[in-house]
Structures are given as structure tokens and as C-alpha cells.
Nucleic acid binder design. Structure first.
Lengths: 206, 206
DNA sequence: GATAATTAATTAAACGTTTGTTTAATATTA
DNA sequence: TAATATTAAACAAACGTTTAATTAATTATC
């Protein structure tokens, strides 16, 4: 990927995250990236292919991290859950614009191939977490829980915070200038909430 | 509100939920409702005002229900949480298209006034739940928890299930024909997961 | 209660923009 | 010299919206 293509993609990410795919015009994109409107089609072929390139380019951003945690034998099962929580919060907070683009898109019933691509990005992570939960249950360290729904809770909690700054700040009683995703103290607060929640829910004895 | 306006709104809801605001054209809307394209502007003034009318028309769909639960003295604190969970699942599953429209819109940084309207719809419900949690904590029935984040978990868990059928089914290991939101057994399953989760997290003694 | 006057509802067509995309000419680099 | 990059301009199609004419419904008058 050339610098120019990356430059366009990175600028496109901001606009797509802010205004959605249909809400963003190629002229918007070109203006923001400081290039001629024809360059988008010259480099990517179409607006939709630019979007796909964006997803593909950023798709690798999680791969491997969860595997490392899961295969690290110095962690017991609940510690793995803890590390996964921190990993998710850290990664999604820093890559929140891309994450927002993914979730906006997967809510729609359009652009079938792109939806599949997004599932391919997100689902493997879920599988890894599921493995940890089931291992814990087999050993009797974890209570008998509904693993897929535990994942939905974990992911959904972070998403709820991440996807609407306005709603999040309202919930927290903060004013609208506050950016929770850039506040390390808030990341910690969320992390501790989720850990406390998962400990109480999963562990057979506290 | 006349029948004709309601008819247009109800058809618009489906399209907006499926394709988003920008992704839906007035010609789409008119075709789906079986009326002339000019009727939308005749009745509502503009596409944006139609959207606002839609939100306004459906906005009252939760009001009062949570209040009833909270003010019912025959429930103790954790039972109120249980009833709130069931109420949320039931209401959001049946009104899931409207709910999807709300959440698609609040993720964007466009249409400022509409965002405020959506916050005005959703936030009062959060306040009521917050009240229940804090009352439980004061009495020592509930553990010391992060009330706003508990709400985020509760709402976020249901949203995670609700906003993408594709991702939901992948998580549950179901095929894509399955519609979890129309399956009473699944509603029960989700309800029990959330109750178990909240009991473990909130109650000082199990 | 029939007829005329008035208002409301509905239509097809056109409006001016904006959209994504392409072209054909020019500039840059290899 | 040949390939690549960049540009301004043009393209057709789709967009939200308006118009002007017509039909339907309502109200007023006798």
C-alpha cells in the first residue's frame, strides 16, 4: 500500500466514522485528504472499493493479541479473562473510529460482501474468548454460564460506551467536551467494572 | 396524526432501519408506502422532518412502564432489576426496528437536534434504573458497584444482540434464517443470562 | 338535498443540486 | 521516451424538493 493510498484511507476513516458511508461523498473525502476527486477512483476504483480497502487495511489490528493471552500458561482462567478485558478496552479505545465504522456497517442489510468481511474480523476474537470460558467451566473454576451471551455482555458493554460519546457522557454525568476514550482514568474505571462483573458472574467462589 | 401520515411513517421505519437515513431515498419511501413522491414533502415538509416525526411518533413507547415497576412496593430491589430486564427485552425485541433507527442515528455526529431528541427518549430510562441500583446500595442489599457502567452493561448486552442479527446468529451458532428476536425461548434465555449476571454482580449474598 | 364555492389531496413533470464516475489533457517521474 | 500521476471539466444518474394542473372531499348557499 502506497503512502498516498494510506493517506486517503486514514482521512476517509474519520469521515466514515463521523458521517457514515452514504453520508460521506467522494468530494468530502478528496477535500479532507487534499487530493483531486478523481484520485479516489484512480487509486481504488470506486467509493465502495475504497471502503473495502479501508476495512482490509485495518483488519489486522487485533490479530494475535488474544492468542498470546490465551496461550500464556502463567495466567489462570480468570486472569485470562482480565487480560482480555484490558486488551479489548485498550485496542478499541485507540482504534475507536475504525471500530465505529465496522459496527455502523454491520447494522445494515446492505453491502453483503462487506458484512461478511466484518464478521470475519470480529468473530474469531469471540471464538477465543468462548474457548477460555468453556475451559474454565470444564475445570469447575467457572460457574455454568451462557458463554455466547457472556461474550455479548463483554463486547456490548464496551460498545455501549464506545459508540455514542453523547450518550456515554450523559450516563456518566460529564459535559459534552469530555472525551472518555482519551482518559486513562476512565479506561481503568471501565476495566475494573467489567472485571468485577466477570469475577462475580464466572467464579464459583469469590 | 392522520392514517395516511402513520402509514408513511410505518413504512419509512422499515426502510430507515434497514438502509439508514442517507441510504433511503424519498422515492424508496414513496414506493414502499404506495404514494406519490410529492406526498412526503406535502405531509411532512422534508425528508428530515419525516424522520423527526417518526421519532416523535414512536418516542412514547417506553414511558411509564419502568415507573410502574419502580414504584411497585411488592417488589424488592433485585426483583425490580429482574422486572426491568424483562421489560427491556420485551419492548426492544418487539420495537427492534425503531430501536435500531435510534441507535444508528445516535452514533453519528450529524443532525444535532435529532440526537438531542434521542437522548431525551433514552436517558430518562437510565435514570430510573440508576435510582433502583443506588437505593439497593444504600440499604446494603446491593454491593458497591459503578451504577452508570452497570446500566451500560445491561443496555449494551441487549443492544449487542439486537443490532446485528448476522453477528448474533454467528455467536449463537445459528444459521442466518433464524430470527432470535421472534423466538420466545431465546428471549427467555437472554433474560436468564442477564438476571444471573445482575444477581451475581449486585447482591451482597447469594 | 342539490348545486356552487372552497379547501384539501394527489398527480406527473420539472427543478436545480449533488452524487459517483469518466474523460481527455497536462504534469511528473522513471 | 514511456509509464505514471494529477488535473479541471464533463457525464449521466439519482437526489430532495417544488410546481402547476387535476381530482376528491368538504363546506356554504340556496
Amino acid at each position: 500500500m502506497t503512502d498516498k493510498k494510506l493517506h486517503i484511507i486514514n482521512n476517509a476513516l474519520e469521515l466514515f466514522a463521523e458521517k457514515g458511508f452514504e453520508g460521506t461523498s467522494i468530494r468530502d473525502l478528496a477535500a479532507k485528504a487534499g487530493v483531486n476527486v478523481a484520485m479516489v477512483n484512480y487509486y481504488f476504483g470506486s467509493k465502495e472499493k475504497l471502503f473495502e480497502s479501508l476495512v482490509e487495511e485495518r483488519a489486522t489490528y487485533t490479530r494475535g493479541v488474544l492468542d498470546e493471552i490465551v496461550n500464556n500458561n502463567s495466567y489462570n482462567d480468570i486472569e485470562k479473562i482480565d487480560r482480555i478485558i484490558d486488551s479489548y478496552i485498550n485496542k478499541w479505545f485507540t482504534n475507536r473510529k475504525f471500530h465505529r465504522v465496522l459496527h455502523r456497517e454491520i447494522m445494515l442489510n446492505q453491502r453483503e460482501t462487506l458484512q461478511q468481511a466484518i464478521v470475519d474480523i470480529l468473530y474469531p476474537n469471540s471464538l477465543i474468548i468462548k474457548g477460555v470460558i468453556e475451559a474454565g467451566m470444564r475445570k469447575g473454576v467457572f460457574r455454568k454460564v451462557d458463554a455466547p451471551l457472556v461474550i455479548a455482555t463483554l463486547v456490548g458493554s464496551i460498545n455501549q460506551i464506545l459508540l455514542s460519546k453523547r450518550m456515554c457522557n450523559k450516563l456518566l454525568g460529564k459535559d459534552q467536551d469530555y472525551v472518555p476514550y482519551e482518559d486513562a482514568a476512565f479506561a481503568k474505571r471501565l476495566s475494573e467494572h467489567l472485571k468485577q462483573l466477570m469475577h462475580a458472574h464466572l467464579l464459583t467462589k469469590s
